[in-house]
Amino acid sequence: MGPLLARAVLDLAAADAAAGPPLADRLRAWSGIAAADAEVHDRVLAAHLAAPPRPAAPGTKKRGQ
């Protein structure tokens, strides 16, 4: 399972880098959700992290370019 977990972490890091804004910026408002309903917060967070990044708008640059 070690290599599969490592691959998943690398894939997640690549998707996060391609997503544009830093993860902290995308998750900033979620502490309020966690305070209101921890189970909903966990489910929304899991869905957010599992979703593929949206394609960049034409003419925009990815972070680091």
Rank of each mutant, 00 (worst) to 15 (best):
L5E: 06
P21H: 03
G20M: 03
H41Q: 07
D37Q: 10
D11I: 03
V44R: 14
G32R: 11
V40Y: 01
H48W: 00
A6C: 04
H41M: 05
L49N: 02
A14D: 12
P21V: 02
L27G: 06
A29M: 01
A51D: 05
A36P: 07
D42T: 13
A17S: 10
Q65C: 12
A36E: 13
A13H: 06
G2A: 02
H41R: 09
A19Y: 01
P3T: 07
A57T: 10
A14F: 13
L45A: 07
A13N: 09
A56L: 14
V44M: 13
L49E: 02
L45D: 05
A34V: 00
Q65M: 09
A17W: 02
R54M: 06
P58D: 12
G2V: 03
K62T: 05
A6L: 12
A13D: 12
A19N: 08
G59M: 09
L45Q: 11
V44W: 05
R54E: 14
L4G: 06
A50R: 06
H41S: 10
R26F: 01
G20C: 08
V9T: 08
A46G: 13
A51G: 01
K62I: 02
D37A: 11
L10Q: 15
A36D: 11
K61Y: 08
A19P: 08
L10A: 15
A36L: 13
L12S: 14
D37G: 04
E39T: 15
S31E: 13
H48C: 03
A50M: 03
L12Q: 13
L4N: 10
D25R: 14
A51L: 05
V40M: 02
A35P: 07
R26D: 01
A13Q: 14
A6I: 07
A47R: 15
D16K: 05
A24P: 00
K61H: 12
S31V: 13
L27T: 10
A57K: 04
L12A: 15
D37W: 02
V40I: 11
V9M: 10
A6W: 03
L4F: 03
A15S: 14
G59D: 07
V40K: 15
L4P: 01
A56V: 01
A50Q: 06
L49K: 06
A36C: 03
A8V: 01
G32N: 12
A29Y: 01
R7A: 08
V40P: 05
A6M: 00
R26M: 02
V40N: 05
P58F: 04
H41L: 04
D25I: 00
Q65F: 10
P58Y: 02
A56S: 14
P53H: 10
A46M: 12
P52Q: 08
A8D: 08
D37S: 14
L5I: 06
A57Q: 08
P21Q: 07
A19K: 09
A24I: 10
D25L: 10
R26E: 04
A19I: 07
A15P: 06
Q65S: 15
A14Y: 09
A57I: 03
P55N: 09
L5G: 05
